[in-house]
Design a protein around this nucleic acid. Structure first.
Lengths: 203, 203, 203, 203
DNA sequence: CATGAATGAGGGTTCATTCAT
DNA sequence: CATGAATGAACCCTCATTCAT
């Protein structure tokens, strides 16, 4: 039974393997050079195949780019889900999200690089991914409010703010040779996000 | 002395005028089309000069880009200074900064568009500008702490966070066909920044 | 002997079968898409084999093309022979040839499409085929002269003219969305060919 | 006065010169290699400029091709008009047309090569040119009929036939290393066209 | 100084051909 | 024998940069 399944899969596995390998190469190159500089030639080199081979697995550069981003996003999302389920309480979960994001920044440079420059054309397709993340975060915030842990902000608005903050943070870390210690930065983000910077008000 | 100075100036004035005019044209074009689509040809058209002339004033596209960003930044900085001086209290001043930034996003799309794709190489040269903004914000926060308006965070760290948040916000607004109302977004930012999202703690 | 011959034949029959099948597929594809658009990939699909298999039977695209043309030509020639034998009299036979050719244009688009772009190199190898047709026509004209039905032109020259006319006609029909009615065109060709366009001379 | 006109023209003259020169190069290359093999690179070489320069004068390959053909056609048409006006009588004029065409075949190989393979896309734009030639010939035939020199054929149909014959003739001459003597071929064409090949009928 | 025609490296993409399986 | 994944040369085209005028 597994045999037959393996038999069917055999070529598919190879195909999937290649597909993923190329997408990874694309991620690396984009992460290093940014999207405009990431030529198909360069990606092919990185993947150890010829330029033409790229087109066996992806219709065009755009499709390859899209897949690379989706891969990156899936990893981020998976990691985020795993970590937030491990802890309890809104603040802790928010912390987990932030940590997942920031740590991802280092590994998945491509993802964030692309998120930066995403033109109006690409953003169309990426909107879906953004909304998944956004929705996940909104729900987390909603639960926090219902649990009385959070104030009564508009969850969607706050979620947007948090995502913007995270994205900006990635940007900064990406473009600096020696970004601040990740743990420190995460702690600051969570602290400010939760409690603000104003001196203790009696609120 | 005045003679010589005038003589030198006369040419320099013209040179500076051209230099600035071209940089502004570059800003407009980049703002409209984004960096990858902003060709030298198009910028020359916008500036009303020929392509070759661009190279009389700028070594290459990169240098032109850099200057364009600097101009944009100068305007942002000037505007920021003016507005923060008009109001009193740390929260109000922070609000003024945020407002200046967000409004700039709409007018100076070029600035932010370029900041988006700023590779590791470019960011090297922009570091200086960032530090100016950063320093200004840090000092503002410091004064807030000394006035007892703010908690005792590390000002530099918080300043960094704020800048990241602003940058991320610009990014989002730039890539959305209908971003949320600017005033709402500004208000949310300032509120969360000042007071956090956690339910009223007695801190 | 028969044994050996059978042994040889068995393989050869299969080989010939494949060879012909592929050539026919090539004809169909070329006829439909024209030569430049007829990719080996597409021909392989049409033939129901893989791209690689094509190269087991033909050295390269050129060779395949050549064979496809030859096949097409064989059919034209066979059809031409059959039809001309069915009728008597030079004019009728000429008409049969013209009709066979024009009707072939519709069915065997590939043949004519290819003849269109036939470069000096290809035409070298097709010369043989042309000469067969040419010879057949020349003889027909000769017999017509001996029978007193035709004037005393140089048969070879006239044959050449007729072939050129037919080829030009195919070309035109191929590149027009709605070519004139075939019967009308055939009739005009035969009439003009036989009697010319000059007003009745006593010749 | 002429001075000023020259001043205005100066750059335009250069531009026109280049434009024509490139079109001529295109004609030569297409004439030699046929359209599919005529790469922009090759045309650039022939014109003695770089690939990029081609695009300063023509939007794309298609546009260049089109212009090249139009140039060729204009020359053919001009030559045809001049020669037919020089002689009197329908037969003589027809002969002049045939002669112009056949002689053109040698010089303007590109024109005929392209006319051969002209795909459905191109033929759209070339239809206009064809119709000019066609119309000219039709009118010539009409006048012949009215003058009683020609039989009462449908001029348009006969014109079509003649054009097809000419085109086919070009094709043949183009693809042969040693085509028959031009004068002989022309004479045969005119004779057959006028009087047919049938033995003297009393018509 | 200013110009813009010219350049040519490089972009994404296609496809005839090869070869390990 | 048959396959089809892989190749890489060649395609058309763009654009930052140069330089003769």
């Amino acid at each position: 039974m597994p045999l037959e399944r393996r038999a069917v899969t055999k070529e598919e596995v190879v195909k999937d393997f290649r597909t993923g390998e190329i997408a990874n190469a694309a991620r690396r190159v984009i992460g290093e050079l940014g999207y405009p500089e990431a030529s198909m030639e360069r990606i092919a080199q990185e993947a150890g195949v010829s330029k033409g081979t790229l087109y066996l697995y992806y219709r065009n550069k755009r499709a390859l780019l899209l897949t690379a981003i989706e891969h990156s996003f899936d990893e981020l999302m998976t990691e985020t889900r795993i970590r937030t389920e491990r802890v309890k309480g809104c603040e802790a979960q928010l912390g987990a999200m932030v940590r997942a994001w920031v740590e991802h920044t280092n590994e998945q440079r491509a993802f964030f690089r692309v998120l930066q420059l995403v033109g109006p054309d690409l953003s169309e397709e990426l909107r879906g991914l953004q909304e998944i993340y956004h929705g996940f975060l909104s729900e987390l915030l909603n639960r926090g409010q219902q649990a009385g842990e959070l104030r009564g902000h508009d969850s969607a608005q706050v979620a947007r703010l948090v995502v913007n903050l995270l994205r900006g943070t990635s940007l900064a870390r990406l473009n600096q040779s020696d970004p601040p210690d990740a743990e420190d930065e995460i702690a600051t983000i969570v602290d400010v996000l939760m409690h603000g910077i104003a001196a203790g008000d009696a609120r």
